[in-house]
Nucleic acid binder design. Structure first.
Lengths: 215, 215
DNA sequence: ACCTGAACACCGTTCAAGT
DNA sequence: ACCTGAACACCGTTCAAGT
């Protein structure tokens, strides 16, 4: 049932998933689904849970490197997995506030593991939490915007005709020649992650100084 | 026409905007709208353009302060305006790849102004562009996730019952008492912005050193 | 030029009825 | 326990027809 729903989502898209279409795909009466799920939203919740299971199954384990390498790798993996599977992306990124208990447990377990590395590297528990949230929001923001662009048919990726609009904008005009203005290119993403890591490095330095001073 | 559509969106929500409902709101035949807009998507595009106009009208002008103050203020204003108006938020943040030429022009003008400040402060045009994109993606990510949570009825904002799940997670358990786990609280947002600014400050320092060395 | 109503294909959902 | 089809209220959209 959920497997069939996933097949349909992967083949078409989450938007294309309707009760009649799913029923047809399963060779079953259109309303039979309501015996298993009391509403479409219920189905979607179950689908979201399964999506998270599949997502985490694809995530490689954290390597025992330095905290900055770990963060970089984790969020790069996070992004590339969801970039490669629109159905998974739509279900995990776009469906907030629809996380089942097992999904929350799965996610928190993952977060705890990361926080542990950060705290062991000298971050306070507070800073570690903020750090993870910041990178998580950024990565998800990038993914959801990229997803939106792809769904809309990928307007202006590079060398876009709208460049004409930039006549009186010297900086943008020159940047537009080399820089994709989608805001979500690989380079953009890498800069964002790297910039946050730079910020965290500076924060860590001041936190260490403060903790030494208080001893 | 567009004004009426906005009224309906503000009173209800963007989801509640249907052709029949809008027609009813305008005291007009259900299909009359199709004389002005060839499809609902067309209507939505026009609505998006108007939303951006209203949004930028509310954005206070950039103050002539230091680049970091400017960024902080800009994105804080950005967020608080869209936090206060769900219709505006749905139309501007959620509808990517549906920007009209005048919307793009409006946006680019705004971006150019910010890039100018950054470049004048010593950033390369490339870094300035990356910097803006990073903060923009983060702010939008935060807004869209907050919006999703609100639409879903704001699950676990604080002191949430799910804390029980965190039994074997020492760091999360202790954090959960003081830290909202929504990832999009005011504190979370402020940390994200501040962390990016810290990262940019470090970047600026190395860029300045490099440009001095090459002279 | 502007608006209407009937009509169509699609949706989510309910419910009484079948096995 | 599991599945069905008829039915309902709601969509977006087309089109021939009215003014």
């Amino acid at each position: 049932m959920i497997k069939g729903a996933f097949e349909l989502c992967q083949a078409e898209s989450l938007d294309a998933l309707s009760m009649p279409r799913l029923a047809q795909h399963l060779n079953v009466g259109a309303t039979s689904i309501y015996w298993y799920f009391k509403s479409k939203d219920d189905l979607l919740d179950a689908l979201t849970e399964e999506a998270f299971r599949r997502f985490y199954a694809q995530m490689p384990p954290l390597e025992g490197r330095r905290w900055d390498d770990m963060l970089r790798e984790f969020f790069t993996n996070f992004r590339s997995i969801l970039q490669g599977d629109d159905a998974l992306c739509d279900l995990t990124i776009m469906r907030f506030g629809h996380y089942s208990d097992t999904t929350v447990l799965l996610t928190w377990t993952q977060i705890e593991e990361i926080l542990e590395v950060l705290v062991n590297s000298g971050f306070s528990a507070d800073s570690a939490t903020y750090a993870y949230f910041t990178l998580s929001i950024y990565t998800r923001g990038s993914l959801s915007i990229e997803r939106g662009l792809r769904a809309a048919g990928m307007p202006f990726t590079k060398g876009h005709p709208r460049a004409a609009l930039a006549a009186k904008m010297p900086i943008i005009s020159s940047e537009a020649e080399t820089h994709s203005f989608s805001m979500v290119s690989d380079d953009d993403f890498q800069f964002g992650i790297e910039n946050n890591i730079r910020g965290l490095r500076a924060l860590l330095a001041t936190e260490r100084k403060a903790s030494r001073a208080s001893q």
